[in-house]
């Protein structure tokens, strides 16, 4: 199947994502994401993982949804949310395949994913986006609403639904086996 080459002009995406949306994405492609995304990081993933182990439902239906690995700072007065940039995705690797199996379509984080996750992305047609690590102040501006969904006691690590508008990211791992980090290095390294 032919996949278009990534262009430098960002592609707009609206969540939830369909198989079709995902199939059209290619590693290295900048995107602007609009719609709902769900926050979850280490502790929330562990709880979801344990819930699945007990045969319970997840706190939200992950089908088509995008999880954003982020633990925001407390919201200052007059703001929608505090600083909210991506955290390292690798720590969530072991919890990720079961979520992909249940239909989750995307994740936003930073840093490399495991072989298992990359394989699961191919198998379940999903995508991993890299966000702008360390740009929490700037990225908070693309978030227009926040709603608490689950695990409120986890504080910054609770699951929240964020409404994002034109949230910038880059496709790192697509569902065709493409890996933007590896491709970038192959292109730019000097030997």
């Amino acid at each position: 199947m032919s996949v278009p080459e990534p262009s430098e002009t960002p592609v707009s995406l609206t969540t939830p994502l369909s198989d079709e949306d995902v199939l059209a994405l290619r590693a290295g492609q900048p995107v602007l994401i609009t719609g709902a995304v769900y926050t979850a990081r280490d502790a929330a993933h562990q709880r979801m993982f344990e819930a699945l182990g007990r045969g319970e439902e997840l706190p939200f239906d992950v089908r088509g949804e995008v999880i954003y690995y982020v633990g925001p700072t407390p919201t200052p007065p007059g703001h929608v949310i505090g600083a909210a940039g991506p955290t390292s995705a690798g720590r969530m690797d072991r919890y990720t395949p079961p979520l992909l199996k249940r239909g989750m379509k995307g994740m936003i984080g930073k840093g490399p994913r495991s072989e298992e996750v990359r394989e699961a992305l191919k198998r379940h047609k999903a995508v991993y986006f890299g966000g702008l690590g360390g740009a929490g102040a700037l990225l908070a501006r693309q978030i227009t609403a926040v709603e608490m969904i689950a695990y409120e006691d986890l504080g910054t690590e609770a699951i929240r639904r964020l409404e994002v508008e034109q949230f910038p990211a880059v496709v790192i791992n697509d569902c065709h086996g493409g890996d933007a980090y590896a491709e970038a290095r192959a292109r730019w390294q000097r030997v």
């Binding site: 633990g71 600083a83 955290t87 740009a135 929490g136 910054t156």
Partner: peptide, 17 residues
């Protein structure tokens, strides 16, 4: 731009403080 914004508005530049 992020660093400028953080300094101007006195908000953390990154969520991991």
């Amino acid at each position: 731009e992020n660093a400028r914004l953080a300094a101007d508005e006195s908000i953390p530049m990154c969520q991991d403080t």
